[in-house]
């Protein structure tokens, strides 16, 4: 699943470390989510969206591949 975390994080000048501390996860988890290697759970996805004052759909993009 693709996402706009990196873009939104840079817009709001939030570092990966700061974001990890705010979400109570490791920095590696943020890196994996940004790269699309790991899909977060619904509560974590909602927390990420809330951190950027966006909706989940604005942060995470559902591909055709994800539907299969």
């Amino acid at each position: 699943m693709e996402n706009r975390i990196k873009e939104l994080r840079k817009d709001q000048s939030i570092s990966q470390e700061k974001m990890a501390i705010k979400l109570n996860v490791s920095r590696q988890t943020i890196i994996s989510i940004e790269k699309g290697k790991y899909n977060p759970s619904l509560p974590l996805a909602m927390q990420i969206a809330r951190l950027f004052n966006r909706t989940v759909e604005e942060v995470f993009i559902l591909d055709e591949d994800d539907m299969e």
């Binding site: 990890a20 109570n24 996860v25 490791s26 988890t29 994996s32 790991y38 977060p40 759970s41 974590l44």
Partner: peptide, 13 residues
């Protein structure tokens, strides 16, 4: 250790 010290959902997975 640096990743697992924070027992988050990725670590659990």
């Amino acid at each position: 250790a640096p990743q697992f010290i924070q027992n988050d959902e990725r670590t659990k997975r």
